[in-house]
Design a protein around this nucleic acid. Structure first.
Lengths: 215, 215
DNA sequence: AATTCCAGAGAACAGTTGTTAACTGCATGG
DNA sequence: CCATGCAGTTAACAACTGTTCTCTGGAATT
């Protein structure tokens, strides 16, 4: 279906990539709302006006970056949460997977953490939508687990959201520890693992909590 | 000791306050890294150079805002976590307290959520330090609880951090739902409460988890 | 009453920003 | 082979930025 696209489109894609990469690099030490379009084109070595051939604005570029940073992550999420292995093993693997992802794509992780609550509304919305998708997918995997017997849909989504937020927090912790000594990264691994484990324990005993009085 | 300070210092404080307030207002729709000093002084109705009488830079102003937003919050944290009431009651009260705080100081909450991972290093560091203090204080309160018998210091700090992060997430959720219909805010309250409750359950059963094999 | 101090004003600086318009050169489709 | 399309260029615009230096009016100190 997608034959090799012409020289023309190829060049365009190449410039587009260069713009995205340059922006991502510049965003290591500032927020999207202060990223100038000229700044980006200057870093790429292209005229400022060339920017408009690819993006309406830097906010538009930001939305594209969200897609790039989170769009390809859905399969990874699915397999991580799926109830193949059991308990502690799965948690260990999940934390290591997050650590690996942060080490491989630090700029992407930083961008998401920074812009999730950042000053650019369309980007915030794009991130929110992707994370909602994650939560739904995690919920779907959790539902397959026999441990979820008797759980309401609301409670499953609650737990899924808790896991997703925890993944983000963990990723952000690994990011801060990226150029710290390995001891620090091991500490982060330890804390993140225990947090997940505590949540897993809460999940196991969720059903047998005492009923509340009706208000 | 602090008698009424002279007309001079009083005026200076007043201008300083105006600068902080104007900045906070402007930060509702952008990040600190894009906030210009002229922008702030213009909003106050004062010459750009007057800014330097109060702050070295906008980053410096940001650090002051962190102090203002989080510094006065320590007593509230302490009393919320203290083991006076029990279980579900305490959680309900905590969530309501967060909701109230967000409604009373939305700009402060937005600022912290936004700049925690924002593009200005000194501000990130200031927030990190304050949150670390929170975690230590929560840990100290948790330690008083008989439920914490047999817990290691590391585990107590782990749980405290989990609670602090959860408070921030909850606050941010309430913020997003601020001008949404009340139904939405009730939904947020419900989810936040259940998250906290699940964590509390995990805490109660933390001690009786199976021991891991030595690696 | 005379002097010092200092918050804020004013003007000017070199450099930046986003956006417009009209252009050029080259790959593409007829 | 020729006409069209379109990625990227060039030039110019008004508006904006942080920072410096000099000045001023009135409170604070002596």
């Amino acid at each position: 279906m997608s034959h090799t696209l012409g020289v023309r489109q190829a060049q365009k894609q190449k410039t587009r990539r260069a713009l995205l990469d340059a922006a991502l690099a510049l965003l290591e030490e500032q927020s999207l709302s202060s990223l100038g379009l000229r700044e980006v084109t200057r870093a790429v070595g292209v005229a400022p006006t060339a920017f408009y051939r690819h993006f309406r604005s830097t906010a538009d570029l930001g939305v594209a970056l969200v897609e790039e940073a989170l769009g390809s992550l859905h399969p990874m999420i699915r397999t991580t949460v799926s109830p193949a292995e059991d308990g502690d093993e799965r948690i260990d693997r999940a934390v290591e997977l997050i650590a690996g992802h942060v080490a491989a794509h630090p700029a992407h992780v930083r961008f998401i953490a920074r812009e999730r609550h950042g000053g650019v509304q369309p980007v915030r919305e794009a991130i929110r939508a992707q994370l909602a998708r994650f939560a739904e997918e995690v919920k779907a995997e959790l539902a397959k687990d026999p441990l979820s017997a008797g759980w309401s849909d609301d409670d499953l989504l609650m737990l899924a959201g808790l896991y997703v937020d925890q993944m983000l927090i963990t990723a952000s912790l690994f990011l801060e520890a990226l150029d710290a000594p390995e001891e620090e990264r091991r500490r982060v691994t330890e804390v993140a693992t225990r947090r997940m484990r505590l949540i897993a324990i809460g999940r196991r005993h969720w059903a047998d909590r005492p009923a509340r009085q009706a208000g």
